[in-house]
Amino acid sequence: MKKELLARLIIILFISLAIAIPVIGRLKLSVNHNNVVELHARMPENGGWSLSTIEVKAGKPLKLHITSDDVMHGFSIGKSDQPALEITPGEFVDTTLIFDTPGRYTFYCDRWCGPNHWRMRGTIVVTGDNQTSQPEPQPLFLKLGIDIDSPSDAETIPSKPVSAENGAKFQHLLPEYALQRDTYNATSPAKLWMRLRKESTLANLPDSDLWDIIAWIWQQNTTNDQVINGQEIFAKNCAACHGETGEGDGVMVRGLPVWDPGNHNSGNVMHEATGEGLVRPPDFTDPIHLLGVSPALLEGKIIRGGMGTGMPYWGPIFTNQQIDSLISYLYTFAWNTRAKNSN
């Protein structure tokens, strides 16, 4: 009988041990992690971020214990230059964030995790008394009242490859407004070309030289660093849909109908994850698209997204500098490639 008792004790002891390890472990974890927020990254189809809103007081550290439940994700704060964290499935990453200014911040996944990747966004609400934060300045496209949804193809395009170097030779002939930043921001290359075409000082130049001038003006309004920076941003965030070469043939938009300016104006309908009504982005290497849009319009598209096309809104994600760089890079698709016959 004593033996039987001993056997029962052993069984109880072993089973208790098996149960105690996870229970005590879990308790210890929650004690250690008193002020820690556990955040699980999941594909949008699997539920997205486990928390959609995180609240924290201004100036107080926000400790995050982040992991992924399915595939590789990233963790990044919108409109900041902080490097993103890589979130590997089953592994935990710890980070501490401190927000000094009250307001709403966006946290987002920066690694493509499926066609709905961009929906993986959440909000960090920073509360505090000192409401010192200033409202963001209005984006240019709103100030100028540009309708970014109306068809915007270029009225005219160059008939042969442009050369900014050649354009530089004629800079002394240019009117003052042509070199102003405001003109660049608000005017599409095709519009500026048509305006300059009417200038008497340039009347003798052939059309192609005039296009070279436009290319040179666009080059003057950007820097090499911006283009390189923009290229990185494009590869990371845009190429999955717009294609690595900008042709609008990215891996995420395969099987979608080809972009058509006619259906680009479908109003304020937000498309759900079904992808219904989504289209392929335009081919940026066809100059008819990019030469018809101004930097302000591109900025608007990036900030607000393309209603009804599937183009996400990047306003809460990119800083203004990042958007400027991206725009600089986008125009290189139109300038660097041979003019395509759009007929």
Partner: peptide, 12 residues
């Protein structure tokens, strides 16, 4: 217990 309480990621 590990299967029920543990990580959803199989390899972990």
């Amino acid at each position: 217990l590990a299967g029920i309480l543990g990580s959803i990621v199989g390899s972990h």
